Simulated scan of single mutants.
Amino acid sequence: MTNIYKTILVPLDPALESTWRSALPAAIDLASHHQATLCLMTVVPEAEIPAIAVHLPDGLDEKLRDKGLDALETLRAKEVPESIHSRSLVGQGRIDKQILRMAVKINADLIVMASHRPKASDYLISAIAAYVTRHAQSSVMVVREGNEDR
């Protein structure tokens, strides 16, 4: 059998379990089955916006990226089996655009991400999944959260 997927991108927020609770196990299963590289990704805010940059400490963007990478590495060590080839990636800026940029950069064959049954707090995540699904060059699997939230 040919391995369809070689690189699987999983965008998530390590601090927000709903962004990975269902999607990450699905991606791990696919990575294992296809012997693919699993790339966990988080996106941190961009602080050095010209209008406000003069009011912020120097190097804040780098500190945000480092903090995001540390949180992602902790999650990866806890949740991803050592038998899966994996890595951590950090984007910075607008979440949907960064996911698409990273997918192209790493030549992802598949993006696996979470979506939820809409509640007021979930519209942002749902909008991001919809945007990525419409604009990605690769296949996108949107994993709907289970019934545990009901």
Rank of each mutant, 00 (worst) to 15 (best):
M1N: 10
T2M: 12
T2C: 03
N3T: 03
K6R: 13
K6A: 04
T7I: 00
I8L: 04
I8V: 12
L9G: 00
V10D: 04
L12G: 00
P14L: 07
A15G: 05
L16F: 07
L16E: 12
E17Q: 13
E17R: 11
S18I: 12
T19I: 06
W20I: 10
R21L: 10
S22M: 08
A23H: 02
L24G: 02
P25H: 07
A26E: 13
A27G: 07
A27F: 09
L30N: 01
L30P: 02
L30A: 03
A36E: 03
T37F: 10
C39V: 13
C39S: 14
M41A: 10
T42L: 11
V43E: 02
V43S: 01
V44C: 05
P45R: 00
E46D: 06
A47W: 07
E48C: 08
A51Y: 05
I52W: 09
A53I: 11
V54E: 08
H55Q: 14
H55C: 13
H55D: 15
L56S: 03
P57Q: 15
D58M: 14
G59Y: 14
G59W: 15
L60D: 10
D61A: 03
L64Y: 13
R65Q: 11
R65D: 03
K67W: 10
K67T: 15
K67R: 14
G68W: 15
G68Y: 15
L69N: 11
D70K: 14
A71P: 07
A71T: 06
L72S: 04
E73R: 15
E73W: 08
R76H: 09
A77G: 05
K78S: 15
K78I: 09
E79S: 11
V80D: 05
P81A: 09
E82S: 08
H85D: 13
V90I: 13
G93D: 06
R94W: 00
I95Q: 05
I95C: 02
A103W: 01
I106A: 05
D109M: 01
D109L: 00
M113F: 09
S115L: 04
H116W: 00
H116Q: 08
A120P: 01
Y123V: 08
L124N: 05
I125K: 01
I125W: 09
A129Y: 14
Y131T: 11
Y131G: 01
Y131F: 09
V132E: 00
V132M: 02
T133P: 04
R134W: 01
R134H: 09
H135Q: 09
A136M: 09
A136H: 10
Q137W: 01
S138K: 02
S138P: 07
M141F: 12
M141P: 01
V143K: 10
R144D: 02
G146L: 04
N147W: 11
N147S: 09
E148R: 08
E148D: 09
D149T: 11
R150W: 07
